[in-house]
Design a protein around this nucleic acid. Structure first.
Lengths: 337, 337
DNA sequence: CTGTTAGCGCTTTCAA
DNA sequence: TTGAAAGCGCTAACAG
C-alpha cells in the first residue's frame, strides 16, 4: 500500500507538504497541491489510520457495547448511533456482550486497547468490571438504556418506572383486574424500574397480579415471553391481560396465548415495552410503551462527543419520556372467560 | 495511559523484555517475567492497538459491510460473524451501507484506511466502486448473501434461485393458481435470483401471477411489504397466495391482508424468505424459505480467515441449501373468495 | 510556503 | 536470556 512517502516521492515534495495537502492544514501553493493530489490519485493512496491515531493520540473510533446486536431494540439503537456518528466523522465498533459480565468486561478491554475516543454502553447488569477498564484509561462513556447509579458518566434513558406505571395503568383503565407481568431480566436496572412502576400502579388500584421473572439471563427473548405467558396463563385466576416489559417478550407471549386458544385482544390483552418498528406490523398490532429509540441513540452520541471534546466533571442525566402507543393488542375486559 | 516504557521502567527491564512477556514470544526468565507482570498489573497497562498494528502490519480487525444493521436478517448475520471472529481473536467493524452505493463506497474506504485485515460484504447492488477500494489495497473480501459474479472473491450464499422455485412450488402444491410475488429490491442479485426461480416454477405450472417490484431501494421493508400487498390484492383476479421474497416484507404483507379483512391462511396464504427467528412467533407463524443464517456467517468468516492467512488466487463459491419451513401462514386453496 | 526532524508505542532484528 | 536500536506511517513543531 502506498504511503505518504511514496506520494512525496512521486510528487517531488516533502512529507510535510503531502500531509498538509491531505489534511488541509497549513497553506500549500496551488501548484504543489495539484502535484500531490495527482500522486494520491495515481497511487490510490489511503491514509493509514493506525499510524495517524498513534501520532494524533485520537482514533475517531467510538465503542458501542450492547447486550445483543441481533435484537430489534439494541439493533435500532446501534444503528441510530452509527448514523449520527458517521456524519460527525466518527466510526463505531459494535460489541455484543451477550448478557454476560465476563464477555462485557473483555470487550471493554478490547475497546480500551483500540484506544476508542469514547464508548456508549448499555450495561448488562450489576457487575462493574467493564467500567473500571474505561475509568483507568480515562475514556469517557455514556450509559444508555440501563441506569447504573454508581458510575460517573453521562446517562441517557427513559423514565422506566413511569413507563411501567403508565403501561399498567392502561390495562387497568381497560377494566382488567387480573394482570400478569413478564420481566425480561433480573439484573437490568431498566427492567427493575419498569417492574416497580407497574407494580405500583397495580397496587394503587388493588389489581390482582402475578409476576414472571426469569431465573437466569437469556438471549432467547421471544422464547422467554412464550414460556412466561404459558406459565402465567396457568395461574388461577388466569390473567385477562399481560404486560410484557419488552416488545420481544410480548411477541412471544402473544404467540403462546394464541397457541392456548385465546384470541387477542378479546380474550387476552397483551402489551409490550420498547416501541420497536415491528410492533406496528404484528397481528394484532402491538400496544406498547414506546421509547424514542432513535433519539436515545442520538442524544447519547451527542453527549459523548461533548465529553470527548472537553473533559468534564459534571455528568448529565438525560431522561426522555415514554409514550403509550395504543394499538390493537389490548382491549376492554370482556368478563371472565 | 501507561506505555510499555512505563512498564519497563517500573520493572527495571528493557522494552524488549516487556514486549516478550506481553506477547509470550521469546524466553524470559521467571524472575523478570514476574516483575513485568506486576508492573502491568500496577499500572493497568493495556497494549496500544494502533501502535501494534502499525508495527505488525496487521490489525486483527475485520470489516463487516451490510445494507442495514437494524434488520433481522443482517443483524443476525453480523452477530454470528462477530461471535465466530471473537473466538479467533478478531474484532469487527460493522458498517451499514443503507442500500446506498455512495455510502457503501465511502465505508469501504473507511475500512481500507483502518487497514482491516479483511472484510465480509453483503453488497448493496451493482455498483462496484466499493470493491475497487478493497482490491487496490489488496484486502481480501468475502461476499455474502448477494452474489456479484464479476468480483474476484470468495462467495458464500444460498441457492436463491432454487429457494425461489421451492417456495413457489409450495404454494402451487397447496392448490393456489393466482399468486402474487413481492420482490424487495431490483438491484440485489439475490432478490433477482429468487424472483427468477419463483417465476420459473409459476410458469412451469401455468399459474397466473403478478409481481410487485419497488421502484427505488428502500430501508422500510415492512412498509414495502405492506404496500406491495395492498397493491397485489387489488388486482383482478386477486391472488390467493403471496410469496414475499423476504420475511420482513412478508410481515408487512400479512398486516396489509388482515387490514383488508382477509384471514390468513384461510383466505390468503402468505410466505416469506430468510428464516428469521421472529417468523416462528408470528401469528400465524410464518412459512418461509429459510436460509441457514448463522452458518452463512460462520462459513464466510472462516473463509475470510483462510484467505487472510495465505494469499490465494483461487476463489471458492460456497452454496448452502435453503430449507422450506412450513408453518401456519400458508394453507390449501379453499376456492374463490 | 516548504522542508527537516523528532517522536507517537510497539515489535523485532542483531549483538552481547 | 537480555538489551539497544531501527523503523512501521504519520503529524507537528521548528527552521528556513
Amino acid at each position: 500500500m502506498a504511503t505518504i512517502k511514496d506520494i512525496a516521492q512521486l510528487a517531488g515534495v516533502s512529507l510535510a507538504t503531502v500531509s498538509r495537502v491531505i489534511n488541509q492544514t497549513g497553506n500549500v501553493s496551488p501548484a504543489l497541491r495539484e502535484q500531490v493530489l495527482a500522486a494520491v490519485e495515481a497511487l490510490n493512496y489511503q491514509p493509514n489510520a493506525p499510524a495517524r491515531s498513534l501520532r494524533r493520540r485520537e482514533t475517531r473510533l467510538i465503542g458501542v457495547l450492547i447486550p445483543q446486536l441481533n435484537h430489534p431494540f439494541f439493533g435500532t439503537l446501534a444503528y441510530s448511533i452509527e448514523r449520527f456518528l458517521f456524519e460527525k466523522g466518527f466510526r463505531i465498533m459494535v460489541c455484543s456482550a451477550e448478557e454476560d459480565a465476563d464477555r462485557e468486561s473483555e470487550y471493554a478491554q478490547v475497546l480500551v486497547r483500540q484506544r476508542v475516543d469514547g464508548a456508549i454502553v448499555a450495561p448488562t447488569g450489576l457487575d462493574l468490571a467493564w467500567a473500571e477498564h474505561f475509568a483507568h484509561a480515562r475514556i469517557p462513556i455514556v450509559l444508555i438504556d440501563r441506569d447504573l447509579p454508581g458510575v460517573p458518566a453521562n446517562r441517557v434513558m427513559v423514565d422506566n418506572w413511569q413507563g411501567g406505571y403508565q403501561g399498567a395503568l392502561h390495562l387497568i383503565a381497560l377494566g382488567h383486574r387480573h394482570i400478569g407481568v413478564i420481566s425480561a431480566s433480573r439484573h437490568s436496572q431498566a427492567m427493575q424500574d419498569r417492574l416497580q412502576g407497574a407494580l405500583q400502579a397495580l397496587r394503587d388500584h388493588n389489581v390482582v397480579h402475578q409476576v414472571y421473572e426469569p431465573d437466569v439471563e437469556t438471549l432467547q427473548q421471544y422464547d422467554l415471553g412464550f414460556h412466561a405467558a404459558l406459565h402465567l396463563l396457568k395461574q388461577q385466576p388466569a390473567p385477562s391481560a399481560i404486560f410484557a416489559l419488552t416488545d420481544v417478550a410480548a411477541i412471544g407471549a402473544m404467540h403462546a396465548a394464541v397457541r392456548e386458544g385465546l384470541s387477542i385482544p378479546d380474550q387476552l390483552s397483551v402489551m409490550g415495552f420498547d416501541g420497536i418498528e415491528l410492533g406496528a406490523y404484528l397481528i394484532p398490532a402491538l400496544t406498547t410503551v414506546a421509547q424514542p429509540i432513535e433519539q436515545l441513540g442520538n442524544v447519547a452520541a451527542e453527549l459523548l462527543l461533548k465529553s470527548i471534546s472537553r473533559a468534564q466533571t459534571e455528568y448529565e442525566l438525560v431522561v426522555l419520556p415514554t409514550q403509550l402507543t395504543q394499538r390493537a393488542s389490548t382491549g376492554a375486559w370482556r368478563g371472565a372467560r
